[in-house]
Design a protein around this nucleic acid. Structure first.
Lengths: 210, 210, 210, 210
DNA sequence: AATGAATGAGAGTTCATTCAT
DNA sequence: GATGAATGAACTCTCATTCAT
């Protein structure tokens, strides 16, 4: 029997032993490794991407990796966090100044799909986090689901959409985004994004309107 | 440079060197290994689940594994296929005899969520297939998305729902199911399934009705 | 340092635990396994030939192997002994009744090359014995070299050939046979055997004649 | 059934993933492993020589082996090539400046036997190549047989020896060398090399002279 | 800061052999 | 006599990580 505990967290706080680069050269090296890691892990998956693959893609020696990152898990963790930051920034830029929830929903979906199409590696990395760094995965989706939920609660309050459990709706809407994003990245769908959005938004808007 | 090709397929046809069991004892052993693999891989993930973990969970020696499966990849492949079969059977049983698409949608979602809650390991395994056995992953979702699409096309035809791109809608609806299923399995959500379904179905039904 | 001792012997006495077949059916099974072993080991080499390969080539179950042979080493041993018996019989039949040493030499070479061309697997097996069962290898060549030596000594005595160290000559002549045999088996040489023999015998006869 | 194809080639081009050493230390380590492999494989045979045996003989960790060689097969391949280079160099040094073919033959045989007695491991390794790396084995003997053949053709042309098929003679002479070499290495023969050569050369010279 | 050689634990897999039926 | 399931030791190879230079 003996179900083993699921691996969880561990790589939470990034800066402890790994020195932050002090020079411009160091900064550049660190960035090169991070970018290489994104490409390599995105393409091969976490387990098939070795440190050697990453460093050779980055054009540095293997040992150099450990000057900037404590472990393989740590780069991965950082990539997931980065993905979160980027997506959230994108979405908040796209939806700021849009008072109506349903309009914001539409703009957000469009922005998300465009981002995902532009960064397919990051999409895969976030999905794989479920198996590699569950804490990061949780943090990623928690941030989204809470944002969503609050938005939906406010929209109900404001009478923009009709009543209904905000958390469940938040997960449902997130699911739509993820699924359509996956269709682009994994399945190579080429439908123009605005067509996708039009179809989906028709459904969502009618599904939620008061 | 050298972007590596993504691992793909390879484990497609199962029986070549691995002998199918010829006795009841063998049959039982094979089943025991498969079940153990489901538990262990579901719990630890593909990479952290070693053959040793699986066989010791199954109560057999390591070598016994290779009597029934050609490789670690192959059990995984078989688990994904099995998951597909089980889910599809569940859904078709739940929705047969329901003529109206929207009602069928509701019944299907309920059945899916109940299934997922009952088989959390299988959910994780299918998700991980994206990184371990992409062919199986593709086959799994292709089967669903096509079924969905056909159902939606027929429903439009029949005037049960209003017009709209069936493929996009199919992916959107699949995304809703997956996301809510994940909330149950990964996030330990305890909302009663019928409440979830009620909330979501309100949105879907209004979103699609003519 | 620690040069390990070379593996040697161990499988010398064949009948101890392995029961000799008592029935005609058993006899046939044993023969089938031996023949299969010759083919499989000859083709793949000792190490790449598994018991499973042999038994499946023989059309019996794995366990059956151990009814007739104590171990993998043992079949191999027996094959080498068999090769020795066959070759010696062939040679003595070919050279009996030929009083003159040089004529006998010619007949023997012809017979040997014909045998080898007809049994390429056995040739390889004997060569591999050097690495698998050195005792058998030694026994095989000792028998030949001694026969050769005695023949040459007698021939000197009789004045058929001119004086010279018999043992060295024996190894030299054996080397010629082996090398030409190998050219047939390993290199696929198709020169007619009598042409080969004519060329070589010209050299040997002139080299040894008084 | 299913006669398996004979293993062939595969280890042909050496440098692809295995990095050539870039420092003196690396160079030394590589050399140490190669030397250890020669000793260990020569003594125990390819299959009984594990990577662990080789690395512990070399005084390095197991993993270090794979920094310098892609596989066990690859070291073996390299050893066979090295053996070929060494022997050819030895022979060409011993026979250069000797215009007469028969004299060169004598000098070559002497040099070969002395080399073999000094490097018994290499002799065994080349023989085992027939079962481990047939390409290397072929390359090794092809180089010799062609050199021999050309020499003999030229000698016939020059009237130093009498006419006769050069290829067959080449294999016969190679066989003599191999066989006498084996007697030294495998059978521990202690006859002084010049006595062996005297006996054999008497036979060859008379056998070939015009 | 950067290198690259070295480590060694641990993984997947094979296979000769045993044994209950 | 024959089967085929089961065993487990042993092997090759990988890779995250450390360290001397």
């Amino acid at each position: 029997m003996a179900k083993p505990a699921r691996k969880t967290g561990g790589t939470a706080n990034a800066s402890e032993d790994t020195s932050q680069p002090k020079t411009a050269r160091g900064e550049a090296t660190r960035k090169a490794i991070l970018t290489a890691a994104e490409r390599v892990i995105g393409a091969r998956g976490f387990n098939d991407a070795s440190i050697g693959h990453i460093t050779s893609e980055a054009g540095v020696a293997q040992g150099t990796f450990y000057i900037y990152f404590k472990s393989k898990d740590e780069v991965f963790h950082e990539l997931v966090l980065e993905m979160g930051r980027l997506v959230r920034r994108e979405l908040s830029q796209a939806t700021r100044d849009i008072p109506n929830r349903l309009d914001a929903e539409k703009a957000g979906l469009t922005a998300f799909l465009e981002f995902v199409r532009a960064h397919p590696d990051l999409y895969r990395i976030v999905q794989e986090a479920l198996f590699v760094d569950q804490d990061a995965y949780n943090a990623y989706y928690q941030a989204f689901s809470e944002g969503y939920r609050k938005g939906l609660e406010a929209a109900v309050e404001a009478g923009h959409i009709r009543p209904g459990d905000a958390d469940t709706r938040a997960w449902a809407l997130m699911g739509i985004s993820r699924s359509l994003g996956e269709r682009l990245v994994i399945w190579g769908d080429t439908t123009p994004i605005d067509e996708i959005v039009a179809t989906v938004h028709d459904m969502i808007a009618n599904g939620l309107k008061p």
